[in-house]
Amino acid sequence: DIIVVALYDYEAIHHEDLSFQKGDQMVVLEESGEWWKARSLATRKEGYIPSNYVARVDS
């Protein structure tokens, strides 16, 4: 799995977006363009995230 960590807070604009806080970790489910589908490890919610707001966690 690709794990990313939030670099900034993000408040969902559309209902399919995923809100998150700086430091939150998410599993990337699908990478396509600038918006990635991800699942929050904390809340288990899924939605689209702006890929420029996150960084990959080296395992």
Rank of each mutant, 00 (worst) to 15 (best):
D1R: 11
D1N: 13
D1S: 12
V4N: 00
V4A: 05
V4K: 01
V5T: 07
V5M: 08
A6P: 00
A6I: 01
A6C: 07
A6L: 01
L7H: 03
L7F: 03
L7T: 03
Y8P: 00
Y8C: 15
Y8F: 12
Y10N: 02
Y10A: 01
Y10T: 01
Y10E: 00
E11D: 12
E11L: 11
A12P: 07
A12C: 04
A12N: 04
I13Y: 09
H14P: 02
H15N: 13
H15T: 13
E16N: 14
E16K: 10
L18Q: 01
Q21W: 08
Q21I: 10
K22C: 09
G23E: 03
D24W: 03
D24A: 05
Q25M: 15
Q25F: 15
M26D: 00
M26R: 00
M26W: 02
M26K: 00
V27W: 09
V27L: 15
V28K: 02
L29A: 03
E30I: 10
E30L: 10
E30F: 10
E31R: 13
S32H: 14
G33L: 04
E34A: 12
E34Q: 12
E34Y: 15
E34C: 15
E34P: 12
E34G: 10
W35N: 07
W36S: 06
W36F: 12
K37M: 14
K37N: 05
K37W: 15
K37Q: 07
A38K: 01
A38S: 03
A38P: 00
R39L: 09
R39Y: 11
S40P: 02
S40H: 15
L41E: 05
A42Q: 10
A42N: 11
A42M: 12
T43S: 10
T43H: 05
R44T: 10
K45W: 05
K45R: 11
G47Q: 00
G47I: 01
G47M: 01
Y48K: 09
Y48G: 03
I49V: 08
P50G: 03
P50A: 03
S51W: 10
N52V: 08
N52C: 14
N52L: 09
N52W: 15
N52A: 14
N52K: 13
Y53C: 10
Y53K: 09
V54H: 01
V54W: 02
A55Y: 09
A55H: 08
R56S: 08
R56Y: 14
R56K: 13
D58M: 10
S59Y: 11
S59Q: 13
